[in-house]
Design a binder for these strands. Structure first.
Length: 699
DNA sequence: ACATCTCAGAAGTAT
DNA sequence: ACTTCTGAGATGTGT
């Protein structure tokens, strides 16, 4: 990639190309940071990784005259709290924990939002690997018989149920999935020190803003935001190291509580929460659950009654919340919402810091006494945004008619599975996107020769056994996708070999995940500074194929004359593979089918990509997706019908779990100073992506 | 076809 | 010992 004045270099390429030299790490799902590994490379001490919040007032004062004795009082006076150090503190003053005071970057200058994203990507990577493991275990491919799909139903669609229980109860029958891949992923992250905040901290955590949405309890654990995947309350107990760090505090006290959405649609009530100790979901659902609840509450009540008689006693979390109140320590509150969405059963939103206002005793159903705590939201925080969650629910087609600023009902004229509306609330007379002939498959220019279809695998119905499926072998011995959620790519690869026209499998095959068209309800919308943009109404899970870059497939040197064409995507798959060392090696494992592919690999020089996709006049929704320096999609080259990487398909995949309405973006991958105008001068274009780590220039 | 219910299995933390 | 989440299969409901 030497000559930069070469005008051919100014197209979109996959982003891996541009910062190849220095960094080794793949840009997607990089598992761990080595930054804090000091010279001798000994154990990386956990504390260096922790962003320390501003000092709590207690710690600064040295003299610990009397350690916590029995001076605990039960009254809830919140004004005159005295701490062990002797100095009296206005416990309402937690200004040193406001979000504004949090550090934006870590000790290496990496923004915490980026660290959070990295951590979640690492988690998702572990997670998807374990999902695949589970799927394999269930399918049980070996033992000769290639998985009879039980006569019941023909394998259709993405359902791909784990081969059901085969009638008789022979012991070797495939077990159902049960291994909780999320928990497996957590174990690994713990083992490899990948938890972002391994030490417990009071108050906001950097990089996790109020309103942040988690998509499972496990995500919170991965970040160190809430260290239990099951418990509703996370608190600092009295065990080992904690005492040191939180010296001066009366233990235990709570850090986080997770409540399931009792006030789901009632935003006003969200400023105040009544929390019922542990397990306190007093839901009014069906009978059986109530019965269960009663049992649980009975257990709880037993404990609480014990607490009543025996002064300050055993039920630790109840005690914890009381200590929060006495010391004025705020609690992070996460609220879980049921989410009517095929991919996520629940969404958890961080609602910010609350303080414990007071508590009281109540008679429980079983006649026992239960404690309830009233938490009030601290002022000065971003307002709650459960609206977004509600939006997800608003399914159905009628919503479209009411879209504000609707300028086009369907930009694709019915060519996609789903309508893609366009909206514009920016321009005065709202304009609609125009000048595009919508197409949903590549148009091949006359002088471009598409190689003949490659030979395919001989699987039937659905490819499930990676040992016998030749397409899986091309991918290094395993399928690149898991079948969960209609197919999710486990991780970015140099190239993905999908099943093609000559394969024996059907359209529902997991290894055709990117061939099934649009799955998410996308919308083209007018942005402030960036022209048109694209967002999704649906949640998109990481690894899901979102859309393919569609346009006219032509030779690169032919479009050089068309300056000002901003919709060229150069197919740089070959460069990607050879530019990054680790990927090059990977190619050696792959058995390259003879013929066409060979020639494609060998005769290409390191100069410029030979072919490109031009979406200037003909294209699909992908051309409207904007650039971002910190994108939520990534580019993946995919080969399905033939094996010539120069003509690979360009498919965009979700790099993260993408919440509804977040603008979709990918890294255009321009090299800086690579764009030369007609006058021979280098052209520049400012970047408006707004990311914390924005490079400020698109090119 | 879709919604709701039930059940088993999960593993780190605090005692 | 305690926590109460998650996914899949089973059962229920509506056209």
């Amino acid at each position: 990639m030497g000559e930069l004045n070469d005008s051919a270099a100014h197209r979109r390429v996959s982003p891996r190309l541009q910062n190849v030299p220095a960094e080794k790490r793949p840009f997607y799902g990089s598992p761990k940071r080595m930054a804090d590994e000091t010279k001798d490379g000994v154990i990386r001490t956990k504390k260096t990784k922790v962003a320390k919040p501003p000092k709590p007032p207690v710690q600064s004062s040295k003299p610990e005259a009397e350690p916590s004795k029995g001076e605990v009082t039960m009254e809830s006076s919140e004004s005159k709290v005295t701490l062990e150090s002797g100095e009296s503190k206005d416990c309402v003053d937690w200004s040193w924990y406001t979000a504004a005071d949090l550090p934006l970057t870590d000790e290496n200058g990496v923004s915490y939002t980026a660290r959070v994203r990295e951590t979640l990507r690492a988690f998702n990577l572990h997670y998807l690997h374990h999902v695949q493991e589970e799927e394999k275990r269930c399918c049980k491919p070996e033992n000769g018989s290639p998985i009879k799909s039980p006569s019941k139903k023909p394998p259709k669609g993405p359902s791909m149920s784990p081969s059901k229980k085969t009638d008789k109860k022979n012991d070797d029958e495939p077990k159902k999935q049960s291994k909780r891949p999320d928990l497996k992923a957590l174990s690994e992250m713990l083992k490899e020190n990948q938890i972002l905040f391994p030490e417990k901290q009071i108050g906001h955590l950097p990089g996790i803003a109020v309103g942040h949405q988690f998509y499972s309890r496990a995500e919170m654990v991965a970040l160190g935001f809430h260290s239990h995947w099951l418990n509703g309350i996370d608190f600092v107990g009295e065990s080992k190291g904690k005492v040191e760090k939180f010296r001066g505090y009366k233990l235990p006290f709570a850090l986080t509580i997770v409540v399931s959405g009792q006030y789901e649609d009632d935003v006003d009530n969200a400023e105040e929460i009544v929390y019922t100790g542990q397990g306190g979901n007093d839901l009014l659902g069906n009978k059986q659950q109530i019965a269960d609840q009663v049992m649980k509450r009975g257990n709880l009540a037993l404990k609480v009654r014990h607490l009543e008689t025996d002064i300050c006693a055993s039920s630790v979390d109840n005690l914890a919340l009381k200590n929060n109140m006495d010391q004025g320590i705020p609690v992070r509150v996460v609220r879980g919402h049921d989410c009517v969405n095929s991919y996520t059963s629940k969404v958890y939103t961080y609602d910010g810091l609350y303080k414990v206002n007071n508590y009281w005793a109540e008679k429980g159903v079983a006649g026992f006494t239960v404690f309830k705590y009233r938490l009030k939201r601290l002022p000065g925080q971003d307002s709650l945004r459960s609206k977004q969650v509600n939006f997800v629910r608003a399914r159905g087609s009628k919503v479209q008619a009411e879209l504000p600023g609707l300028v086009c009902k369907d930009i694709c004229n019915g060519l996609e599975n789903i309508c893609i509306p366009a909206t514009n609330v920016i321009d005065k007379p709202p304009i609609a996107p125009e000048g595009l002939k919508y197409i949903n498959s590549i148009i091949v220019e006359k002088d471009v020769n598409i190689p003949p279809n490659a030979p395919g695998c001989s699987c039937k119905g659905n490819c499930t056994n990676p040992l016998t499926c030749s397409c899986a072998q091309l991918n290094g011995g395993d399928f690149p996708y898991v079948s969960k959620d209609g197919g999710r790519l486990i991780e970015a690869k140099a190239v993905v070999f999908e099943c093609g026209p000559n394969c024996g499998c059907g359209p529902g095959c997991v290894n055709r995940s990117s061939q099934r068209g649009m799955k998410h309800r996308l919308e083209v919308f007018r942005t402030d500074y960036k022209g048109w943009g694209v967002r999704s109404w649906d949640f998109i899970p990481s690894g899901a194929p979102v859309c393919e870059y569609i346009g006219v497939l032509r030779k690169t040197d032919e479009v050089d004359s068309l300056l000002g064409n901003e919709y060229i995507f150069e197919i740089d798959c070959w460069h990607t593979m050879h530019g990054i060392g680790s990927r090059e090696k990977r190619m050696c494992d792959v058995t390259i089918p003879n013929g066409d592919a060979e020639s494609g690999f060998s005769k290409l020089s390191e100069s410029e990509p030979e072919f490109c996709i031009d979406a200037a006049s003909h294209g699909n929704v992908t051309r409207y997706i904007n650039h971002s320096c910190e994108p939520n999609l990534f580019v993946q080259c995919v080969l399905s019908s033939h094996h010539d990487v120069r003509l690979a398909r360009i498919v965009l995949f979700a790099a993260d779990n993408i919440p509804p309405l977040q603008e979709l973006s990918y890294d255009y991958g321009y090299e800086l100073d690579s764009v030369v105008g007609l006058d021979g001068k280098i052209k520049q274009l400012a970047c408006h992506c707004g990311a914390v780590g924005c490079r400020k220039r698109l090119y």
